[in-house]
Design a protein around this nucleic acid. Structure first.
Ligand SMILES: [Mn+2]
Ligand SMILES: [Mn+2]
Ligand SMILES: [Zn+2]
Ligand SMILES: [Zn+2]
Lengths: 152, 152
DNA sequence: GGAATTTCTTGAATCGATCAAGTCTCCACG
DNA sequence: CGTGGAGACTTGATCGATTCAAGAAATTCC
């Protein structure tokens, strides 16, 4: 079924004017399968896929891809930077305070920027970063189990 | 004029059940005068105020004060953690992409949490963190000057 | 004022990320 | 095809922010 592939790494790289290399392709594929992963997580996934690649090479690829707008980099407080392929769509993130899992949250108000401060203090606001912190279902279940065990 | 003091470090510490020490008082006073400062900036301010205190001691004090809810700690992406005395009022921050300066932004919708995601994905949302990124007046002026010089 | 508790100092270590120099790969051109 | 040169990748060092650990000093409560 041609065209059913969600991601064409080669096309993405060519469109960005970047060389098509094994490492970059591997990084893009890994990100397509594991969005919001850290550099180390991606390195692990890439290695598991059979592509030999240094962690530093992963960092380099992610840096270049981010600089060229192919990737988006987010830095939730208290955890390593995460990367994703969704760029330029003004979506937001929900971060679990237990396991640092990150999931996408669409903007609830409309187009970008979906929110502006009441008083900008003379700043020219270019980006509205909205991060929700909470506990994901898995962590909530785990906490419930732990409480039961403690009470028993 | 008794009572005109904006901050009583000793009372704050006692209320939190913490020992009143020179270092903690110095940290609170410095924060009162320089909100949203980093640990190193606070250390510099404290030293300038004539109080001998190690950078590590500043980190320890900030950690304890944050754990006890006396301080709030924020971690803007790409810069060191900042601290402030405004706790529990659900206000937000405006960060300059040029100099990392941080200023307060009051919530524009109402009480906490002033915003909730359209789809919480099963998470129990506990905190809504909203960060605006932009360029502050000083940096904008500086950029304008630089451009003029470049054009001249 | 003195003992017990905690905080502070000194120094090392950690984590995530970046830098630097040399080697290897991609790809445009012959 | 075959090759040359820009630019990726590897290896190893380095960095900044923060934390950890053990002993010395300070604070609190009697
Ligand atoms: Mn996302
Ligand atoms: Mn603030
Ligand atoms: Zn979780
Ligand atoms: Zn600025």
């Amino acid at each position: 079924m041609p065209g059913s592939d969600v991601l064409d790494p080669t096309a993405l790289l060519r469109a960005a004017g970047l060389k098509v290399t094994r490492g970059r392709v591997a990084a893009l594929v890994a990100l397509g399968e594991h969005s919001h992963s850290s550099a180390e997580q991606l390195h692990t996934h890439i290695a598991a896929g059979g592509v030999p690649m240094t962690l530093q090479a992963v960092y380099l690829s992610l840096q270049v891809l981010t600089e060229h707008g192919v990737l988006r980099r987010i830095e939730p407080a208290g955890s390593a930077a995460r990367y994703e392929l969704r760029v330029g769509d003004n979506h937001h993130h929900l971060v679990c305070t237990g396991c640092s899992r990150v999931v996408d949250v669409d903007c609830m108000v409309g187009e970008a920027p979906c929110l502006l401060p009441a008083d900008a203090h003379g700043f020219s606001v270019q980006e509205t970063e909205l991060t929700f912190w909470g506990v994901c279902p898995d962590c909530a279940a785990q906490a419930a189990t732990t409480r039961e065990e403690g009470a028993a």
